[in-house]
Design a protein around this nucleic acid. Sequence first.
DNA 1: GTAGGGTTAG
Length: 574
Amino acid sequence: MLESLESLLTKSLQINHAKQIHALILTNAFRHLQPQLLQLILKTHPYNVQTTTHYIKNIIKYSDNNLDTFSITSTIRFFSKNNNFKHSIKLYAQLHYLGLVPSSFAISSALKCCAKVLDDGVGVLIHTHVFKYGFCDCVYVQTSLVDFYAKLGSMDIARKVFDEMRVKNVVSWNSVLAGYVKCGEIEVAQKVFDEMPERDVVSWNSMVLGYGKVGNMDQAEVLFRLMPQRNAASWNVMISGYANSGLVELARRLFDEMPYKNGVSYVTMITSYSKQGDVEAARKIFAEVKEKGLILYNAMIACYVQNGLPNVAVSLFNKMCQPDVSIQPDKMTLASIISACSLLGDKELVASIESYLSKMAIDIDDHLTTSLVDLYAKSGNIDKAYELFHCLQKKDLVAYTAMILGCGINGRENDAIRLFSEMIDAGVSPNLATFTGTLTAYNHLGMVDNGWRCFMTMQEFGLVPSIDHYAIMVDLLGRAGRLKEAHDLIKSMPMKPHAGVWGALLLGCSLHNHLEFGEVAAKHCMELEPDSTGYCTLLANIYASTGRWADAEKLRKLVRKSVFTKAPGSSWIG
DNA sequence: GTAGGGTTAG
């Protein structure tokens, strides 16, 4: 029986056989055959990826560590191919733990995964194995090392490994080239490109990408026209290059011109239009695609969320989950949907997302955690937000900003300010949103001087205050009665103040009964928003409290009159 | 080995 099962295992490539044998082996008696079982499953693919993953995990779990290098390597490659990089890395660690000698395949696959998830710990460990097990002349292993360090941004090490390679192929050259492109060193990349003994379409694409990255689309275009052959990636890097330079029309022209569009092309166009705020153009592209995949849906959903249409995003999400479409959302989808929930304040949807996360065993990474931090903070559960915030592997700009804003709207201004200085100490650079949150906190606390100092540090971070930052500062100064400073700040603004800025000054004036600036501010407000009566009322209050009763009454009459004449649709007079 | 999707404000 045992013998026949073993020979069956090696011979059986039929899917139905594979399933039967699988069932048999799981009945305990044949545990020792699990390495072969793994091979069988990986060779025949009797299940879909999800089920296969599930079984493989179980087989490994119950294998009593009797797996061999070959089965583990195949499994590492299976996980890697299905974007399950963390599992690949874990398995490589297990291989090492079992005292098995890794193959060149295991090493290069595991390094690839480390590069994908930027796991420098395991990656560097694998580098020591390369020496230990003597893979110094294996071009695949060495190239994976170059690629790993290049992706990590450690170009000096990548270069060192590359220079020491005795045998190099075009992929090795492309790896260093892509590394220099990635960190924006286009001159060095150009030098590498010139030195290359052989170039293929990937080399050319990297150069086109590199020039696009540094904003030199002219040179990118020159290379694009010059390259001996193009593939879809060539067109796509040009499209995203133009899109990232804000030249969406040129991107679109190439998109229309390209002979064979693929999924990436559509997604690139949708994302470009999304960044431009042109939701309708993005939606048209989306509608054009016949076979819609997960990434396309993700791009469209993100577009809706980012452009203030969370409800549309949620309905598209619901559509993709329906049986006739039946696309499994992943953590990217969920990050956008959580953001939508946060904007909508939809408690029911939040509950269903939470159960989905646990049911589908979604890998909750820092990105996803950050969107949850924002969600809980915005919905008032600041303790839970804090808890998740502390669970983050790496607290980045977005996480700090979400937390600072969250504290601000939950009355924890002191926490917001503390988090701000914590983030600066941690070497994380704030952006405009961070300052919005922090300045708002100072504003609520009425801490004028600290707020002012904070405002002044914006330029140290290379930031130009937006109109809203000015509005917060005017509000802060105005409430504190420092009306001249507020007025001076408005006059110094490089952009035209909107009604919110003047309104903040007017509010300050009404709190402190300051007529001179109050009249100036009110005049601007009424010019900018002639339909709004609130400004008249504020000015009338100033008149009244400074004893100018006649002016006050005149304005109030005006207000009453306009209430009766304006906006008939919303008026009870009808 | 090159190209595409996610999180923070308004």
